[in-house]
Amino acid sequence: MFVITCPYCGERDLTEFAYGGEAHIARPHWREDMSDAEWADFLFMRANPKGVLAERWMHAAGCRRFFNMLRNTATDDILAVYRIGETPPKVEARLPATPSGEAPLGSGNDAVKVIQPGEGG
């Protein structure tokens, strides 16, 4: 459950918002020689990172405006909120030590955390 700070209305409960998916995906300019693969990449392929994700949200039960957010998908930490058209700010995130690993805290996944060689437990 998140509390999201709408850049226009302030702090509101997650249930007031609709999700808009990955942000900053630009529709490619049409070209005569554009390949199907290029189109497929725009339409279907997604970054889906375990880490910092730039995403769009819409304040559906409020001002009904879209905005962008940076969130760490390994912990659900909200790192920044910024308006459509702005560039994502630089942020720091608590990332997992390995690509599929678990972040130091807050992931909800402690039970499946891998014990690395040398670590107790």
Partner: peptide, 21 residues
Amino acid sequence: VAAGHTSVIAGLVGLRLPIES
């Protein structure tokens, strides 16, 4: 065969997939 982590594994060889977790 990594279910929720499929995109992460594909990312290890630089592949993008049409999958979201």
